[in-house]
Amino acid sequence: MLVPPIMILGGLGLLFGGGLYFFSRLFHVEQDPRLEEILSALPGANCGACGFPGCSGLASALLEGKAEASACLVGGEEVALRIAKILGVEVKVREKQVAVLRCRGSVVERRFDYTGIKTCMAAHALAGGDLACPWGCLRYGDCVLACPFGAIKMIGGFPWVDEAKCTGCGNCVKACPRGLFILELLQKTVHVLCRSREKAKDVLKVCKVGCIACGKCVEACKFNAIHVNNYIAEIDYEKCTSCGACAKVCPTHAILNFRGERKERGILPSPKRNTKESVLSQTSEGME
């Protein structure tokens, strides 16, 4: 009694198995073995900072030669060197960039009761936002949501960038409706933490630590790297040496030097940088 069902099921199994084997041979897709390797070298956050759709998109672009080996902003030099090794190409290592929020968040006063949805973008679209300062951080945390690496946290209702975790992907720069974030090299430690284009009188009405465009920083700078345009001091990072002279003279403390803070946390690269070769040997040791 059991023989016919076994025969039928067994036969069907063989038939389908054979069919699967045959068709997988027939429609076989040749895949570069390096694709898997590159994918495993990439961080896998799919943040899109490289401009390609996710890490797999970048991996295939790398294989096709459409992207530089250092295209992954997030991975930094470690990933770049690994990818360069896999592809067998030269690489110019990018230096680490971090996002800086250019607002000190001293304004808490609101112009009106905002009852709409709690996102910066929506609040900003309604009459320019409820914050008393029309340029400052709205504190609804679009940047926190946008950060794929959990590097931005709300501390006391104000976003704080954890520079150790920040990979410089730039998603927060895109998310902030007021354009308060800037991506700069980690070594550039001096920043103007204000974007207010108001005159001094109007700034001081709402904020004690805003830029009042007094121009003291311009005088203090020996490198002609800071200028006041549209009532806001702006640093030319090409020329800036992060000496911190402007931060010292700023009467409202709108310019800050992060050097001490970054050194303390041990995230500032030492002036004597490792050579590329030594990093490469370190990382390859680490891999093995």
């Binding site: 709409g116 949805i117 996102t119 973008m121 929506a122 679209a125 409706p177």
Partner: peptide
């Protein structure tokens, strides 16, 4: 607040 959500979607599309 549906209109506000749609407004936000519009802003994103424009961007």
């Amino acid at each position: 607040e549906l209109v506000q959500y749609i407004k936000q979607a519009k802003l994103e599309v424009i961007k």
